[in-house]
Design a protein around this nucleic acid. Structure first.
Lengths: 247, 247
DNA sequence: CGGTTAGTTGAGTGCATTCAATCCCAGTGG
DNA sequence: CCACTGGGATTGAATGCACTCAACTAACCG
């Protein structure tokens, strides 16, 4: 479990050098995207750049709610673990995404773990809130980000509740492909920086089943598999199995 | 399916008679709760009271995003159906809750169906947005409502992804009990206005399995079951099985 | 070259599903 | 008043999909 490897909570923090948002090139609606240059500098001046090693914990469910993290590179898994040792990953926060935002009774609502090496722009919570409170565009962007994440969680509920395992994997691949393509990617190549076990924890299945699903989709000539990437051979067919896009 | 019974989309709308929020007595953070009396009158003056029959659709995924609904009595299921006919209920909107808020590309993101007879306070979307834009407390309340729903969706993901069926049902009962207790309810009696099939669609299982789970929990002397209610006999034991509350 | 970690594959089990029968109860008409 | 009907709920039997446990392979690093 997490306790086995003592993870330093706060890596060295470097003050942002008043640069325009490095992770912003916008996949998503984004909390700093709508700001003009001057405001963006003000905003980022309240943030610190931090680097995190793979498998480090950025925040932990139950801990007093501290900073908010904007992922600028790498991937953070937002998750929660159950007493029996299993964990469920709720979402992967990609570059540009915010995580550690939700709190319940003054504590982080979920765990945040670096799936790859990660850099974040780290904001003090009250500074972040104050900025949002005094700048309408940011408040609006936060609202949109929340809506976005909520819609995505809704989709995820459908996947976990109503799809067989192969379909889940197919859906996941389509989703990753769509997410990555909007960030300029080579043809059908979908990078999979996360381990099989992480995908399993995201899709509510076992890593062996993830593996079997990959080979199954491979045998159907829909994808070509390697450890840390997948080539989508038949996007239509894959989307059909994965029920993607919705409807 | 839905097409079988032609459901009139817009039941007769009655203009709100400038009354204080009828559904507000606050289970939750609420979009009209934080307003002072005068503002609340202004706010509700922009809403219409509507009545909906059981199994009527308030809004439909894919339809142009129309009004936003505040449930004032009854229960609305927010769901999405898959091509194969199965559906997943994402949440039950109880009195005080907002639904129909999320949109994707100008269309409702999900379906909304009255599980019981329902009354709503219905707001035009842009009127609602304008009000939130010009009243900070409302904007803040919307943000909190979104956070609340998002945290709840996260919990739901854990249930669907990582819990066996009996635990899902136990969790569901604990949750319903907590929700209803905060709205003053008799001892251990948990009302279940929704059908078994609805519970199944919410918990990602079949109605037969829901039924079996009920009898299983009954045999463990944790609950006593009837069609439209459950008596919780052993709250501790039930919570233990259902992993509720989280952690 | 040995050791470690991640991934794949195989065999067997079990839990939830499917399909079908039965039960229960409220509503209705004889 | 009671038999009939229909929808919802429960129960039973059999199937199958995903899980568990275990062996094996591949890649990586010292």
């Amino acid at each position: 479990m997490a306790a086995l490897q003592p993870t330093p909570r706060s890596p060295p923090a470097i003050r942002y050098a008043q640069l325009p948002c490095p992770g912003c090139p916008g996949r998503h609606m984004n909390v700093c995207q709508p700001l003009d240059d001057e405001l963006q500098v003000d905003f980022f001046d309240t943030g610190l750049r931090q680097k995190w090693a793979r498998r480090q914990q950025l925040f932990r469910s139950g801990d007093p709610a501290g900073p908010i993290f904007k992922v600028t590179s790498g991937i953070v898994a937002v998750s929660r673990s159950l007493p029996n040792g299993t964990r469920q990953i709720l979402r992967f926060a990609l570059p540009g995404d915010i995580c550690g935002y939700l709190s319940e009774g003054g504590a982080y609502a979920f765990d945040g773990e670096a799936i790859t090496d990660v850099t974040t722009c780290t904001f003090q919570r009250d500074g972040f809130d104050n900025f949002a409170a005094t700048h309408d565009v940011t408040a609006e962007a936060v609202r949109r980000e929340l809506s976005q994440v909520l819609a995505s969680a809704g989709q995820h509920l459908i996947v976990l509740g109503r799809m067989p395992t192969a379909a889940r994997v197919a859906h996941f691949l389509c989703r990753m492909k769509a997410d990555l393509t909007s960030r300029s990617q080579t043809a059908g190549l979908v990078a999979l920086p996360m381990a099989r076990g992480d995908i399993a924890d995201y899709l509510g299945m076992r890593l062996e089943t993830v593996s079997r699903s990959f080979t199954k989709l491979h045998k159907l000539k829909l994808i070509s598999v390697s450890t840390d990437a997948v080539v989508v051979l038949d996007e239509i067919g894959l989307a059909a199995i994965g029920g993607y896009p919705p409807e």
